[in-house]
Amino acid sequence: MHFSALFYCKIHASKIHHLLSEEGYYVSLKRVQRLMKKAGVKSITVKSFDQRQVRKRS
């Protein structure tokens, strides 16, 4: 996977770290996190549905 393609994916730092290590680039997870922060890249997270937040109608 090309590094520029990582900016358009819905993946987080640990996944990027894993993909880079598979490609032969051995960098720490912390370094990937710092570089993502410096570049302004944030992972897209989807909140899961929480049943406790639903009110019951009377």
Rank of each mutant, 00 (worst) to 15 (best):
M1V: 03
M1R: 08
M1W: 13
M1H: 07
M1C: 09
M1A: 10
H2R: 15
H2Y: 09
F3G: 00
F3I: 15
S4L: 06
S4T: 10
A5E: 15
A5V: 01
A5M: 15
L6R: 02
L6C: 12
F7Y: 08
F7V: 01
F7I: 01
Y8D: 11
Y8L: 08
C9I: 05
K10S: 05
K10W: 15
K10Y: 12
I11V: 05
I11M: 10
I11E: 07
I11Y: 08
H12E: 13
H12Q: 09
A13H: 13
A13G: 04
A13K: 02
S14I: 03
K15H: 10
I16S: 02
H17K: 13
H17T: 06
H17D: 06
H18K: 12
H18W: 11
L19A: 14
L19S: 00
L20Y: 02
L20S: 05
L20P: 04
L20E: 01
S21M: 08
E22F: 03
E22D: 08
E23D: 01
G24I: 01
Y25C: 08
Y25L: 14
V27S: 11
S28Q: 06
L29G: 06
K30V: 02
R31W: 14
R31Q: 09
R31D: 10
V32P: 00
V32A: 08
Q33V: 09
R34W: 12
R34D: 02
R34P: 00
K37S: 14
K38R: 05
K38Y: 09
A39V: 07
A39H: 06
A39I: 03
G40Q: 13
V41I: 09
V41W: 07
V41Y: 12
K42W: 02
K42E: 00
K42F: 04
S43A: 11
I44C: 09
I44W: 10
T45L: 03
T45F: 14
V46T: 07
V46E: 09
V46R: 12
V46I: 01
V46D: 04
V46W: 14
K47H: 15
K47S: 07
K47R: 13
K47W: 06
K47N: 03
D50F: 00
Q51K: 15
Q51D: 00
Q51F: 15
Q51H: 14
Q51A: 14
R52D: 03
R52V: 09
Q53Y: 10
Q53L: 11
Q53N: 06
Q53V: 15
V54A: 12
V54I: 12
V54G: 02
V54Y: 15
R55H: 07
R55F: 11
R55T: 07
R55C: 06
K56T: 11
K56S: 04
K56V: 07
K56R: 11
R57P: 05
R57D: 09
S58E: 07
S58I: 04
S58P: 12
S58Y: 12
